[in-house]
Design a protein around this nucleic acid. Sequence first.
DNA 1: GCCAATTTTGCACACCTGTGCAATTCCGTC
DNA 2: GACGGAATTGCACAGGTGTGCAAAATTGGC
Lengths: 343, 343
Amino acid sequence: MKQARPDRTQGKSFVSAQQVADRAGVSRSAVSRTFTDGASVSPTTRKRVLEAAEELGYHVNHLARGLIRDRSNIVSLVVTDINTPYQAAMIEALTRRLQAADKVAMVINSSGQNASVESALRQTLHYRADATIVLSGQPAASLIETCLNNGQHVILVNRDDPVPGPETIMVTNRTAARQAFDMLDRAGCKRLAVIASAVGSASLSARKKAFVAAAEAAGVPVSVTELGPTAYQSGVEAARLVLSRADRPDGVFCVTDLLACGFLDAARNEFGLTVPDELCVVGFDDIEQAGWSSYELTTFRQPIDQIADHVVNLIDHHTQIRQVQEPMRFQTQTVWRKSVRPR
Amino acid sequence: MKQARPDRTQGKSFVSAQQVADRAGVSRSAVSRTFTDGASVSPTTRKRVLEAAEELGYHVNHLARGLIRDRSNIVSLVVTDINTPYQAAMIEALTRRLQAADKVAMVINSSGQNASVESALRQTLHYRADATIVLSGQPAASLIETCLNNGQHVILVNRDDPVPGPETIMVTNRTAARQAFDMLDRAGCKRLAVIASAVGSASLSARKKAFVAAAEAAGVPVSVTELGPTAYQSGVEAARLVLSRADRPDGVFCVTDLLACGFLDAARNEFGLTVPDELCVVGFDDIEQAGWSSYELTTFRQPIDQIADHVVNLIDHHTQIRQVQEPMRFQTQTVWRKSVRPR
DNA sequence: GCCAATTTTGCACACCTGTGCAATTCCGTC
DNA sequence: GACGGAATTGCACAGGTGTGCAAAATTGGC
């Protein structure tokens, strides 16, 4: 059934709708309508067109289609630290759903120099993306403002910019952080510590603050450590710093699982501590590694699937309003494993 | 300096070059040439155009540009298991370099149903991508054939399809696998095992076969275990299976670090074995977790940066030849850590 | 100031598609 | 077979850009 296509070794360009029309003996409009949902074509011509298209290897040029319609069906994902388990999982969930909705994801790596980020983000506008999804705290708010000014539909995930326009999706950071305190408190921890990072986003900052507030309200001493990027190595270094103190903590809340993994490894392998007997650790995100048997980390799961579902829903049903919107908040799910003593 | 743009709340479409031309008092061609590299514009008009563009918030429409030129500056990355450390690192490296080359990455998630993969892969053709980079063994060869038939520039990474057309990039799998045997042999291991997966790609298969061949050539007994996908959990299950045997192996080669992490965890936490004294383990890829202090995995690093560099080079200098091409092979780098006894 | 050589500019066409509108065809009914 | 209504089809325009070509403007030299 599969027919060899006329070879394109001559550098001949792609097949156009006109060529299909000629071959099928119909007008170009008929070809266009055949590939347009809800357009009126008789079954006869539709069949002829499809056959001709198959023989010639025709594919609708989405560049031209996007030019005519207002929507390009491209969605930009702006993300830093792609090779971080949490972000990678987010990209996986989003690309899968976008494809199911006949859209396609354009990934913009916003790590690195701010200048290159800006030029990359401009691609969002260049390609007339249907929406821009910002997954990380990295790109400056001014760049987002640029997108908004150009009528871009911007969706912020786990950010907290009080600018008018973008829709915002968050997680119940404060509730979870308070619960983290409760868990450690009930486990009998007397000296608490929270491990964050130097470049943390608003989301991480909210977790940190809520934990500290809860501890102080309960009169439990708590120390705050923030160094390096939000990465495994930062957790290791934080552990070295914090655990070598005379009054080292016996309960630790790491605002990210990645930090928690580093902290746990250093605590066990460098300080010889046993978890959860001598030290309790709580993480955040529930990345895959948190479930690995070397960690068995008690943590809070971000409902990535729900978030991704909601994001693509937002893209479809979009009404342009430029006012500060109340963020949509998803509840985290507590995942009890073995890094905290059961009550 | 930054000027507020005329508000677009009326749903007004994007700014076009014509509007910029009107405002700058020049022809539309002048605007087009201003934003085209190597075009002839006088400094005076260039300046006027840039000012008008800034004021109006003009952005070249890459859909229209791609329509005129043959190249859309979009590069498709076809990848399964995005939230796997190795693939995520690859995406990070590629997106970074593509952006530096003024291109943009379109990520196509080829996990899941084959039908949806096919429709997603079609996007590559719809958007007239400059090239398609296939990062995983998942999509069927027939889909790649479709891309090739449509004149797509296809680059295969760590695949081994003997079809004419695509350029192929590989890693010295066999050399590394043989070296893995040498490492275990010199460490004094007497009973070897290789852990692969049921859905392995050609690359993984090559590692497995080369290791087995080396072992058999040296007269050392070796068992092969292949179950489940290429994931942590498969490593755990393989360990449960293999280590509960009476003559359990004392030297194991996992064709992937992810498998090795699972194997190590199960070996230590479920069987109480000490590494590397009672068991030596070698992995492949050098994912980030291999360096975490719970694993300290001896492994082979894939030169991801070099591969990514080479890929974008291939995209730029592309001569269309439809013949089977010798794969470009990159050498892995041996990373000695602590999961194998030093000689 | 004049002329030739070079640079710059504008016009018009091309790229490929979607769609409103009017003309045509089709179908069922009398 | 005629006729009314519905479905289908083709025409022509629009969408935003790049670029060859000829006209215009600029530059340099004398």
